[in-house]
Design a binder for these strands. Structure first.
Length: 945
RNA sequence: GCGCUUGUGGCGAAAUUGGUAGACGCGCCAGACUUAGGAUCUGGUGUCGCGAGACGUGUAGGUUCGAGUCCUAUCAGGCGCACCA
């Protein structure tokens, strides 16, 4: 029987769908295993062959686990909110919901062809109200929570209110935007609105006035990870800093936990390192500086408290609130000019152009250790968002301070013995401290660091500062709170309305609050977000429903929030929803949550290292504090699949003609290079007829061939429509079948490596499948598996394969598992193996890779054993034992000859035998045996001298 | 600048973790079957050399009986962070 993949695959696709083969339920009798892919954004371009790479890898693992008897959850869904659909809507007026629906249907069609074992009953879409109900719910929970530093956990905001009412801010250790101080009496005397304002300082989801990345072209703010090199990640538009009132998530409160529990994860070192970098823990000291002739005191943060005696100036960030306080009248004009100039620079300009700029404020700070006066400057090299927005500058030991001091001719005092600071600063934290203080200078309490190492000096200063109440030891994180508002239409609406200017939550039992219809997807004429175009977008607190904006004058009707949530809102807890996707009462029910717990294996691209994978971990930790998530970490093991790049083909057109010259001859002419559709090129040979038909302009093309062929040039580029190098999985499935596609994608190279797609090699995978098929069917198409006993060779081949495949699947070395199949099938064919016992097992082994053909074979075999036996690898040893070891006699670095011994011979036996052997004795005569090296199954050596 | 990572045939890549470098696949060459071959099957294929043989894992050293693998230096590419005090 010919290997008719079309018939086979069609048949099993139908059966799997009809019988819901991959539907999964909680089952207490089985151990769970949760496999998850990062869900896709359904773009209009559809899938190319790079997209399924990770899905295939995880599907192989899911099928493998299932064959081992695990209850495997392997769901799929869509991250359906996003900019492209909205941009398309703005351009064409087509509602994003329609575009999204169309794209999803296309994705589904493409995915279905590839034979994934997804449980589609659990499909979710982030834009479904049923789904975003729980995104809104989580937001409200965050609004109603604060973070307790003492217990390292989110707490209900009522607890905080109770604390304020009883003792004000005394004894409070909680995460906040700003340190506040008030008494219980003061709290109790506050108006309701004032109390709400105070609480906003502590909520985990809060409305904050912060510097944001504003992108004027997109008309929206962006999160830090959505800004790359000073331009927007999507579209590459310029981004500027702007102070705006926005919803924020207090991610920074979780920085410590996000950092610490990284150690418990089975993720690659590079991703963990990237996250550590992004979180950016830094242990240092906060110190108070008094301003000369003023009551003002301000705080700075430093990791080099030991350099306090080298401080020659202070610097404030231009956005710092201290700037207004410390600028003297004499300097005001100059400072304001500077602030104006900095404000105009975009983030990109600041990065590109690192000129040293700054201005003197006119004020002096007082060194708390020596009483010396230090000028206070303002410069944009100090960031408002990190630490306190103010620094003490030590030009001798910080390269940035050094550049600044040189530029403005400020003094530089070296503090480390032997450090030469005439050309550059000495930044290393090493050496012996001197000039601390400089001779003759009196210090508070006679404090001195001279003679200590830097490490000792840092510790001594910290201790002194704490004891003297001059400051405190502080851990700072680079991780900022996430800006959670977007001025877009196509996102989750906030379940929030405004009363007296303060945000109020729409009652939880009224959720979901559905996205309103609008006629235009652009901002309103008054510059409000697109939801400002909705005519029915007000909340009636009495009727508990959305009502017409016209009713806002009524006492019970209030305007709803016009911003929507960002893309990461919907993708942060989706893995929890898959556990229980149709639950109307909760994000995830107790039973399902306790059973599935968390994701055992998560597969996706490493580009989400600082975005999704941080937000999702944060979101999960919050839900864990609430008791909704059952695990401190959402994704236990993470595998990052590499990107598949495109392999472009080129034709060479002779200038000013319609004649194309083959690659090898192109240097004889003056030519221009053109990308040609890779789908009309095979092994770099152009199908000239298809080329003529491809484009009108090439209809009359002429060709200069070599050896009767037109050879195209090639190059590795990003896979994109404009380069005509997009290879579509449907076309591969159509031509070779899904099993071949799956096998080939895995064979291409290590899963975590980026590699170019090359359709040329796919024939090899297809040939393998045909050879596999031919083991079961003879030339006359008859099923030829018999009950004959397997031979020793059969067993050896099989067990070699079992061992290799089990090990390789376990550590995702699919690219070496595939060759193992090829070798085994080749050997079994040579051995003319027809033994059912062997072939049955073989069919099970390949099933994760090529599920269609495996199902077909199982059926033909009478559905015999279809279980991947966990004990198989242990049985292997017996069959894989080598009969002999070979002893190589090396002399002067050359193997002179070899002797064979039984595999279980001891070193002593081998040594004796070698010495008594006539031939070897010739070499060994008069030599001393140093050692005998025996490695089972290998050539071994006797070392002599 | 800091951190991570990768360098092996014409190409994608293997290498039991210190033990016969280049498995397997593509491509290429030869042969078989064919009216035909972008089908199928068989054999060959690191480089130089007619040959025996010599040389070969970015480069230069080192450790070792033995190094793609370990150590030191160096070069090149990729990724991430980047005025974070």
């Amino acid at each position: 029987m010919e290997y008719n993949f079309r018939e086979i695959e069609q048949k099993w696709r139908r059966i799997w769908a009809e019988q819901q083969t991959y539907k999964v339920e909680t089952d207490e009798n089985k151990e769970k295993f949760y496999v998850l892919n990062m869900f896709p954004y359904p773009s209009g371009a559809g899938l190319h062959v790079g997209h399924p790479l990770g899905y295939i890898a995880s599907d192989i693992y899911a099928r493998y686990k299932r064959l081992q008897g695990f209850n495997v959850l392997n769901p799929m869904g869509y991250d359906a909110y996003g900019l492209p659909a909205e941009q398309y809507a703005i351009e064409t007026g087509q509602h994003p919901a329609i575009t999204t629906e169309t794209n999803i249907n296309r994705y589904r069609e493409q995915l279905d062809k590839i034979g994934f074992s997804f449980d589609w009953n659990r499909e979710i879409r982030t834009c479904d109200a049923e789904y975003y109900h729980w995104t809104q719910w989580a937001f409200q929970e965050m609004f109603n929570s604060y973070y307790c530093n003492a217990c390292q956990k989110a707490q209900p905001i009522q607890n905080l209110v109770a604390h304020f009412a009883a003792q004000g801010t005394a004894g409070l250790d909680v995460a906040c935007s700003e340190e506040l101080q008030f008494t219980a009496d003061e709290w109790n005397a506050m108006s309701d609105v004032d109390q709400q304002k105070v609480l906003m300082n502590y909520r985990i989801a809060y409305l904050g006035e912060t510097m944001v990345n504003w992108c004027p072209v997109l008309g929206t703010v962006l999160a830090n990870d959505e800004v790359v090199d000073g331009v927007s990640e999507r579209g590459g538009h310029p981004v500027e800093q702007k102070k705006m009132k926005q919803w924020c998530l207090r991610v920074s409160a979780y920085a410590g936990r996000l950092l610490n529990s990284l150690n418990t994860l089975d993720w690659s070192d590079s991703i963990k390192e990237t996250q550590r970098n992004w979180i950016g823990r830094s242990e240092g000291t906060e110190m108070q500086f008094r301003v000369k002739d003023s009551d003002v005191e301000f705080t700075i943060f430093t990791t080099r408290a030991d350099t306090i005696f080298g401080v020659t100036f202070m610097v404030l960030a231009p956005e710092s609130e201290l700037v207004a306080q410390l600028t003297t009248d004499a300097q005001r004009a100059e400072v304001e000019a500077y602030l104006d100039a900095t404000k105009k620079r975009t983030e990109r300009e600041r990065i590109a152009d690192r000129r040293v700029t700054g201005v003197f404020s006119g004020s002096y700070a007082v060194n708390p250790f020596t009483g010396q006066e230090i000028p206070v400057w303002i410069s944009d090299y100090v960031l408002a968002g990190y630490g306190t927005g103010a620094i003490m500058a030590v030009p001798a030991h910080d390269s940035r301070d050094y550049a600044f001091a040189r530029h403005f001719d400020l003094p530089i005092i070296p503090l480390i013995e032997g450090a030469d600071v005439s050309e550059e600063s000495f930044d290393a934290k090493e050496g012996i401290v001197m000039n601390s203080p400089v001779a003759g200078v009196e210090t508070r309490g006679g404090f001195s660091l001279n003679g200590l190492t830097v490490t000792e000096a840092i510790a001594a200063t910290k201790k002194f500062v704490t004891e003297q109440g001059m400051g405190r030891v502080k851990v700072n994180y680079r991780l900022r709170d996430a800006i959670f508002s977007r001025q877009r239409y196509w996102g989750e609406p906030f379940p929030v309305y405004y009363k007296d200017g303060m945000p109020q939550m729409v009652p939880a039992d009224c959720l979901p609050l559905c996205l309103p219809e609008v006629t235009k997807f652009l901002p309103t004429e008054t510059g409000e977000p697109p939801l400002g175009n909705a005519t029915r977008w007000a909340w009636d607190t009495e009727k508990h429903e959305v009502v017409d904006n016209a009713l806002i004058n009524h006492k019970t009707v209030f305007p709803l929030e016009l911003n929507t949530m960002p893309g990461f809102a919907g993708s942060s807890a989706y893995y929890l929803r898959y556990m229980d996707p149709r639950n109307h009462e909760a994000l995830v029910g107790d039973k399902a949550g306790a059973y599935w717990k968390n994701v055992d294996l998560y597969v996706g691209g490493s580009e989400h290292a600082t975005g999704h994978l941080i937000y999702s971990r944060f979101w999960n930790k919050f839900l864990f504090d609430l008791g909704v998530s059952r695990s401190e970490e959402p994704f236990q093991k993470l595998v990052n699949q590499g990107m598949i790049q495109g392999r472009s083909n080129f034709v060479y057109r002779i200038k000013d003609t319609n004649t194309f010259v083959s690659l090898g001859l192109k240097d004889q002419y003056e030519t221009t290079q053109h990308n040609v559709d890779v789908n009309i090129v095979s092994n770099d040979v152009l199908d000239t007829e298809a080329f003529k038909a491809w484009r009108q302009e090439f209809a009359n093309a002429e060709f200069i061939l070599e050896d009767g062929k037109y050879i195209c040039g090639n190059a590795v580029e990003k896979m994109s429509k404009s380069k005509h190098n997009v290879v579509n999985p449907d076309m591969i499935v159509e031509k070779y079948g899904a099993d071949t596609l799956r096998l080939y994608e895995m064979f291409l190279g290590p899963i975590n490596q980026s590699k170019p797609w090359d359709s040329n090699g796919i024939d090899g995978s297809f040939r393998f499948l045909r050879r596999l098929w031919n083991l079961y069917f003879d030339k006359n198409d008859a099923f030829c598996v018999t009950d004959e006993a397997p031979t020793k060779d059969n067993l050896k081949t099989l067990h070699k394969l079992i061992k290799k495949v089990s090990e390789d699947i376990e550590d995702f070395s699919y690219n070496t598992a595939v060759p193992a199949f090829m070798i085994a099938v080749g050997e079994l064919a040579q051995q003319k193996c027809q033994s059912r016992q062997i072939l049955e097992t073989l069919a099970v082994l390949v099933a994760p890779f090529t599920p269609f053909v495996a199902e077909e074979l199982w059926e033909k075999l009478g559905h015999a054993e279809t279980v991947f036996n966990a004990q198989w690898p242990e049985f292997c040893e017996e069959h894989l034992k080598e009969d002999t070891v070979t002893l190589g006699i090396s002399f002067n670095g050359k193997t002179r000859f070899t002797l064979d011994f039984p595999a279980d011979a001891s070193k002593e036996t081998i040594e004796q035998a070698a010495l008594s052997d006539e031939q070897s004795a010739k070499y060994l005569e008069g030599k001393q045996v140093v050692k005998v090296i025996v490695v089972p199954g290998r050539i071994v050596n006797i070392v002599i001298k």
